[in-house]
Design a protein around this nucleic acid. Structure first.
Lengths: 332, 332
DNA sequence: TAGGAATGTTTAAACGATTAAGCACAGATG
DNA sequence: CATCTGTGCTTAATCGTTTAAACATTCCTA
């Protein structure tokens, strides 16, 4: 790789010091630099196609203008859509984004955060796996600016952006109720993650409707969804609706309901958390909870920026999700 | 943010020079350092929780161990799955990945590549939009290590990894032919992108089957897919299959075919390029061309690593895609 | 007309690492 | 005994910026 042009190159070509070049190109010391020299410097900078070496600048200023984004899995549509929004929002503020996927592993999360910090990112946006409270406390004790996204830990106060999962689930169940469903099966992860358990709590704590719960282990989604639905169908013949608390669960569930020839919504109502393309193409369009992704990403970046500039403030933001009602919960 | 511990901190605590600390921690000058001092240094490094400042290291070594990954749109499943694989493969070689989405815009691509280069990434993996050959020549003239991914430009020789789109389309049409389809509508982008036009060419250049083509503008996918299908259905009543040359086109098309009550595969066979979850949930499982994503990502990173270490070699890799045959092309 | 202010520019240290070269002392070798 | 070799460590330059402080001029102003 050819060497890029540096301040020194410009300085020697114009016949001034590197300091002056730096001042001119950064627009500092305005009013103390002769227009003529300033113009010559700018001209030569353009001629030599000068671009400042961000690495050197970072070393001096202790700011890299980059952030680390840790997601559960960038190949999951929920993550990748958020990533896209964060990338855009971060760019607006001049931050580049380094991405890592935790795969729901605490060790991998720690490793990736280490990589981020060694690269001196200015701040972190994190979707952490369960049992990683210690990571949060650790970052707090080191006074590193970060924001939790989507997942949060009530036991450790921190900047966070998430949706109000409880009320989202509450509105799901109320909707089912008002459409005359009486007996809902809830398919949820077997996890300690609070945001997921809030979905469960919001759904089960409502009166006037019966609920059964099927728990799914992370590594065994298809398998456990199937046995949960089987359990629902056999031991609970009056069940008339299923609420899937994530997009992956829904996809697995719909596949299985298809296989079992369960008709939606005639035999069974279905409602999901999160959206996927598949919901539009299913023979019955699927009702779902729509997370405000743009707002989530926007707020996450805003909070992170705020934390970078003043890490004493703390904000916990809960956004409202929207219920998209379609055919899969419309009882005939 | 608290200041991190530096070589200097360790050096002064142990009572040696920073050079020695650096040598010990990097395992250099083996055999010329007393075990006792080495151990003391390592111990103190651990005590102070030392992590090298990659920024400083990068400035000196001129290696950042990071790569820039430019995708069309990280929120598209094809992109995000590739991103995930590249992230993993890059990590194995010690590279961190900075991601950007071009949105098929040349200006945005240039801007993002600029950001990457200012951050002194060691290499680039790029999925460029149409009309961006000049970017490729420019990078070549600057001798910057890069690899084109998915999209390539025959007019400019460069490292590239893509699938053999022509033969993939060829096998699609041959499959349709052997299942007794006679008249296929091909829905493709109105673009100059070679890899997409190869899909078209591979499909239209086969004998023994009639083909009509509908072109879709990038910003008007749903709209143009609909008018193309309308055109097929009205002006070409014997049409018996549709080949969608991308996942987004397929989703739009299937939605519209649903709306039009066209039954698949009775009224119309359907086959797609790329996979999405939706294909499993559609009332008829959809046949598709499966791109070897893992291999694509793996080869891209391998080539990039090679280019970083020796930018005189060039490789152009074309991988074979696999045809996944399911119900949507099985004529009764 | 001396002294301060304003203007235009340079000097030099610093950020935190890497690394070639040098220094000092030990023991080995002829 | 002089010299060489090996061992263990330090010195100091360097990467490309930023920025406080200093230095020269020229220009006012009392």
């Amino acid at each position: 790789m050819k060497k890029k042009t540096s301040l020194k190159d410009i300085a020697s070509k114009v016949g001034v010091s590197t300091a002056l070049v730096s001042y001119v190109l950064n627009g500092k010391m305005k009013g103390r630099i002769s227009e003529e020299v300033a113009n010559r410097i700018k001209l030569v900078a353009k001629e030599l196609n000068y671009h400042p070496n961000q690495i050197a600048r970072s070393l001096k200023t202790n700011k890299t203008n980059s952030i680390g984004l840790l997601l559960a899995d960038i190949s999951n549509p929920f993550s990748s859509q958020i990533a896209r929004i964060i990338e855009n929002e971060a760019d607006k503020l001049g931050y580049a984004v380094i991405i890592g996927s935790s795969d729901e592993s605490v060790e991998k999360s720690e490793k990736i955060i280490d990589v981020f910090l060694n690269r001196q990112v200015d701040g972190l946006i994190l979707s952490l796996p369960e049992k990683s409270e210690h990571i949060v406390s650790d970052l707090k004790s080191k006074d590193i600016p970060f924001v939790l996204l989507d997942r949060y830990f009530p036991s450790v106060a921190a900047n966070s952006v998430a949706i109000d999962n409880y009320s989202a689930s509450e509105s799901v169940v109320k909707h089912l109720q008002s459409n005359n469903y009486k007996n809902v099966g809830i398919i949820s992860y077997d996890t300690e993650l609070v945001h997921l358990n809030e979905r469960l709590r919001g759904a089960t704590e409502q009166n006037g409707i019966n609920s059964s719960v099927g728990k799914v282990r992370l590594g065994h989604i298809q398998e456990d969804v199937e046995s949960a639905i089987d359990m629902f169908l056999t031991s609970n013949p009056t069940m008339d609706a299923i609420f899937f608390t994530s997009n992956l669960l829904t996809i697995s569930g719909l596949k299985f309901l298809n296989k079992k020839k369960v008709n939606i919504p005639c035999d069974m109502g279905v409602i999901a958390f999160d959206k996927t393309d598949a919901f539009d193409l299913f023979y019955t369009s699927i009702s779902y909870v729509n997370q405000p992704l743009a707002k989530l990403g926007n707020e996450a970046v805003r909070l992170m920026h705020q934390a970078i500039n003043d890490n004493t403030k703390r904000e916990q933001i809960f956004l409202l999700a929207e219920l998209i009602i379609r055919d899969s919960t419309s009882r005939k």
